[in-house]
Design a protein around this nucleic acid. Structure first.
Lengths: 163, 163
DNA sequence: GAAAAATACGAACGGTCGTACTATTTTACG
DNA sequence: CGTAAAATAGTACGACCGTTCGTATTTTTC
């Protein structure tokens, strides 16, 4: 209950780095995230930060992942604790609104959508995958609400994209 | 009928530069437009291109202007030849759709909107001004259609932003 | 045609960027 | 403890960026 499991320092500072990186990327966008600035923000050397990821692209992917993780933690997890059906769907929608209100600098993932919309590469793919997962989640929740008879046979994607 | 009015060469190459710059910025965005690439595209030296604008920012502003000019020439001017009222409003809307269909790489001005949305500076201001002008034009056209009784008292901004 | 002005070039500057390589320090573990 | 491994620092490189400057060349004007 005391000794950390073999590796502690590395993972810890990596989390710290990603945390600061997330803050920067939320303001400047993933493309505006530079290793030099990030290193200064965490109080490390450029190379020290760099060593944790191996490339800027991997860093960006990690930050994007963190963005998706936080979003899921903030919106999805709470909603999954609600009973399935319209209640849960509403929780998702409300959580979504709260989320975009919370981060007045804009949602990192949403910014990434337009950033990599017409820019092929691993980042683009990762963003698309994340959006699709989010879309399938909301679709499933909506389907549940329809199955339970709480919703007419409305088309789901329209609802989601509308909001 | 032969001698150009005092200055010919300068203005001509400047137009050529802006033309190429517009093509590049339509693909890469105004922020992705670099003087080096542009110089190579027109077959000039970096400094030669630079001299025409004095700064990268002025170049970007000039390209943005060109984008607005082409848009107006393509959409607005033809519509103004139609009789005022619903016919003209329709011409504007159709022209708008044709415009975004024509440039499959995306409208430069629209891209600029998101590029400089949260990035203060002269570019941001110029983009906002251009959007407002476009908005007032459509508002005026809509008002004419209302005045002539061809349209109910619908609210204009909603229509525009919806499309 | 000569003088003047506009235009274009080429090299260089200072800066930032991502990345590679090598040392040094810090951690973990027997 | 001591020692191997992991983590971090330091330094340097090459590429690109916008910009400046001195100079050569072309165009305009008289």
């Amino acid at each position: 209950m005391s000794s950390q499991p073999a590796n502690s320092k590395g993972a810890a500072t990596r989390e710290l780095i990603i945390d600061r990186a997330y803050a920067i990327a939320s303001r400047e966008g993933l493309e505006g995230l530079s290793i030099g600035d990030l290193a200064q923000a965490v109080g490390m050397s450029k190379s020290g930060v760099f060593a944790h990821f191996g490339s800027r692209e991997d860093l960006q992917l990690a930050v994007l992942d963190e963005g998706g993780r936080r979003f899921g933690e903030f919106v999805l997890i709470p909603a999954l604790r609600k009973p399935r059906g319209l209640v849960r769907l509403r929780a998702i929608i409300d959580g979504w609104f709260d989320w975009v209100r919370e981060n007045q600098h804009g949602c990192l993932v949403m910014s990434a959508i337009s950033e990599y919309d017409s820019l092929p590469g691993p980042l683009h793919d990762a963003v698309v995958a994340r959006v699709q997962r989010w879309r399938s989640d909301t679709t499933r929740a909506t389907q549940m609400a329809i199955d339970s008879g709480e919703l007419r046979a409305d088309t789901d994607p329209q609802q989601v994209s509308f909001e």
